[in-house]
């Protein structure tokens, strides 16, 4: 088991390398870069003095180097104009758009992004698990139909619309401040109990809004998986032993239906992040989503590259967790991996 985990972690390194290369490649695909766009603009306005400064900056950030060198400098495997200074060394690059290091731009948002993602995944799982089981064991009952209808509504309603409605209602009924992840008076303040509670209260709406469609999909998947399992021979065997229906359900088919459920942890994260960009803008959430949007618009390459890479790392971490959980839950995976040794 330990060997399996270690091997999975080692296996992530080449994956990360490939991802980082792809990210860099895609970001560099549009012609020019942030600075050359600026230069073109300034030239059009006839401001030659600034152009010289920007040309200097271009050299400073090695933007005039060939593609592969730029990539290696970015990840920190090649000396840049100021020696080795890239992702591997902990230097996340410079954001031209915001005029400060990437670290300072995204730093405050990263933790909140992770927290929001974590609570959303938790929400999706906590809500969909009992409903999925209910729907499968009482197939074609009124409850099943009701949840199915709700699920389709959840899938079909645009997230931002749902967000706006919920914001309005919560403001009317509970007096929650509109938007943001905390009440305005706490922004920039040190952490305190009140601030924490405020963050929790403000997490509810985004969590529900971002999680709805994921929950709906998850309920359908769990229901389908469980329905498949309920009629398998081993369930009949267990019933023939005299187990009561509830015990039987929990011990056998539910364990089996858990597999796809766990395997989805990794998949759900990128869809949550990319799906939450608009919601984050609408709800004014300080997550990386809106920053990613701005950076892509202005071709702020180091910033965009870093955020995409960050989301990839989150996804890989999710995959790792789900793989390890799967190996723990399912002996076929665990022993299959060890049987080959």
């Amino acid at each position: 088991m330990l060997v399996y985990t270690l091997r999975r972690i080692v296996g992530m390194i080449p994956t990360l390398l490939v991802i980082s290369f792809l990210v860099f490649f895609v970001i560099e695909l549009p012609p020019g870069d942030y600075l050359s766009n600026q230069i073109a603009q300034l030239k059009a306005q006839g401001e030659a003095s600034s152009v010289a400064k920007l040309e200097f900056l271009r050299h400073e950030f090695a933007l005039d180097a060939p593609f592969w060198q730029r990539y290696l400098i970015w990840i920190g495997a090649w000396p840049g104009p100021h020696g080795f200074s890239g992702l591997l060394q902990g230097d996340w690059g410079w954001s031209f758009e915001f005029g400060k290091p990437v670290e300072q731009v995204v730093g405050p948002t990263l933790l909140l992004t992770v927290v929001l993602n974590f609570t959303t995944v938790l929400f999706v799982y906590i809500v969909s698990f009992p409903i999925g089981i209910y729907s499968a064991t009482r197939q074609y009952s009124w409850g099943d139909y009701g949840f199915t209808l709700l699920g389709y509504l959840g899938l079909a309603t645009p997230n931002f619309l749902l967000g706006l409605i919920m914001l309005y209602l919560s403001n009317r009924w509970f007096g929650l401040s509109v938007g943001g992840l905390m009440a305005p008076e706490f922004i920039g303040q040190p952490w305190s109990v009140d601030k924490f509670l405020s963050v929790l209260a403000h997490l509810i709406i985004p969590t529900i809004v971002i999680g709805t469609s994921g929950t709906a999909g998850m309920i359908r998947r769990l229901r389908a998986n469980l329905l498949d399992e309920l009629h398998k021979q081993y369930v009949t065997t267990a019933r023939a032993k005299g187990l009561s229906e509830t015990k039987l359900l929990v011990k056998y088919p539910m364990r089996m239906a858990l597999n796809p459920f766990i395997a989805d942890i990794g998949n759900i994260i990128p869809s949550l992040v990319s799906g939450s960009v608009i919601v984050s803008v609408v709800l004014n959430l300080p997550t990386v989503g809106p920053i990613l949007l701005t950076s892509l618009q202005s071709q702020d390459q180091f910033l965009a590259g870093f955020i995409i890479l960050f989301v990839s790392v989150l996804t890989l971490a999710g995959m790792l967790i789900s793989d390890i959980l799967l190996a723990m839950v399912d002996p076929r995976i665990r022993l299959g991996a060890e049987a080959g040794r």
Partner: peptide, 25 residues
């Protein structure tokens, strides 16, 4: 019925490949 089943009356099914749960020892 549950007290009888698996206790006083046992059953062996045809398919040994599928009549055991793969997740339990």
């Amino acid at each position: 019925m549950r007290d009888l089943r698996g206790n006083r009356i046992g059953i062996v099914f045809q398919e040994p490949m599928t009549s055991l749960s793969p997740l339990h020892t």
